[in-house]
């Protein structure tokens, strides 16, 4: 006898789902409820999960919409305010409105108070505006538990919003427009800042990504902030004649993320949601290509 086919989830069922995910993503660093944790990993060790949480979000990819949508990547500016306005004071949390937990908790609250349409609209316009890009970047981090949690949040949100069908929703929040760093006076620091900005390059290039590229090419990555480490990677690549290889490494990251987003457009969200991110990844590849071309020209001229 085969397993019973699952029935479509109802709003009443979704509410605890959002709430559980919000709870995990908010309290992860201070400890995860064992029952919740076992949904994702039956053998989950609380200490290990805390450690993974720090690696995933504190040291890895910040779970804030602003980090993805803002040109300055800062929490507390326009995106935070815009989301906060939409949420009112209903989140029941002290987290900034652009934090993933605040948003998931907000949807749970809307569903509990039977505001189904508002909930679905918020999911589509706010959460899905950045969650796919966040999830895709996180999937390459060595944090399996939290990868699964965020992926489940994406599953839930896209299923809830019926997001594979475009046209019935208002426009989601959009990543900021950021000019390409290819002006006359642009230097490696400008390019590094730009590459560190998801709204510009279409994905979050994490410290782990930078370290991985540097390790393969045996290039120093230095210390400091993420833009600083990207800059150090590029600068040392110039110093050691490995700029082409470094740009190839960055391009590979962008291509993988682009492919992953296009895959999501087949299973989770309509193309209109991922299109801004794919377009920015294409721009990122263009900038990286320009940098690589400059490196090749320099190499050729030095050979002359």
């Amino acid at each position: 006898m085969g397993a019973a086919r699952p029935t479509a989830p109802t709003d009443a069922a979704r509410a605890p789902g959002y709430d559980a995910l919000a709870s995990l993503l908010e309290h992860g660093a201070r400890g995860v409820e064992p029952d919740l944790a076992r949904l994702f990993d039956p053998s989950a060790d609380p200490g290990e999960l805390r450690s993974q949480y720090v690696a995933a979000f504190d040291l890895g990819i910040p779970p804030y919409a602003s980090a993805f949508l803002e040109a300055d990547r800062c929490v507390g500016s326009a995106v935070t305010a815009a989301i906060g306005d939409r949420m009112g004071n209903g989140a029941g949390t002290e987290l900034a409105a652009c934090h993933i937990s605040a948003q998931l908790r907000h949807v749970a609250g809307l569903l509990v108070s039977e505001q189904s349409e508002a909930a679905a609209l918020f999911v589509h316009d706010v959460i899905l505006a950045w969650l796919p890009a966040f999830s895709v970047a996180l999937q390459e981090q060595a944090v399996p538990f939290w990868r699964a949690v965020v992926r489940q949040a994406l599953d839930l949100a896209s299923d809830h919003a019926g997001a594979t069908a475009p046209g019935q929703w208002s426009a989601p929040l959009q990543p900021a427009e950021v000019a390409k760093p290819l002006g006359e006076t642009s230097g490696l620091a400008d390019i590094a800042q730009w590459l560190a900005t998801p709204a510009a390059v279409g994905t979050f290039i994490s410290d782990r990504d930078v370290v991985a590229i540097g390790r393969v090419l045996e290039l120093p990555r230095g210390f400091g902030s993420r833009p600083q480490r990207i800059e150090t990677l590029l600068r040392s690549a110039v110093d050691y004649g490995a700029l082409s290889a470094a740009t190839d490494g960055i391009a590979a990251v962008l291509k993988r993320r682009r492919g992953a987003l296009l895959e999501l457009s087949k299973t989770h969200v309509h193309m209109g949601i991922v299109a801004p991110w794919v377009q920015r990844l294409d721009t990122g590849l263009e900038v990286i290509g320009t940098l690589a071309e400059a490196a090749r020209r320099k190499d050729e001229s030095s050979e002359d």
Binding site: P6, P9, A13, L39, G109, D159
Partner: peptide, 26 residues
């Protein structure tokens, strides 16, 4: 989409009976 719906339904099913938590003050 079937797989996605199935995944979501399984996840939600496992949470059956859990009440949403709103006040997170410690």
């Amino acid at each position: 989409m079937t797989d996605l719906a199935s995944s979501v339904a399984n996840f939600l099913g496992s949470l059956f009976g859990r009440k949403p938590e709103h006040n997170t003050d410690s």
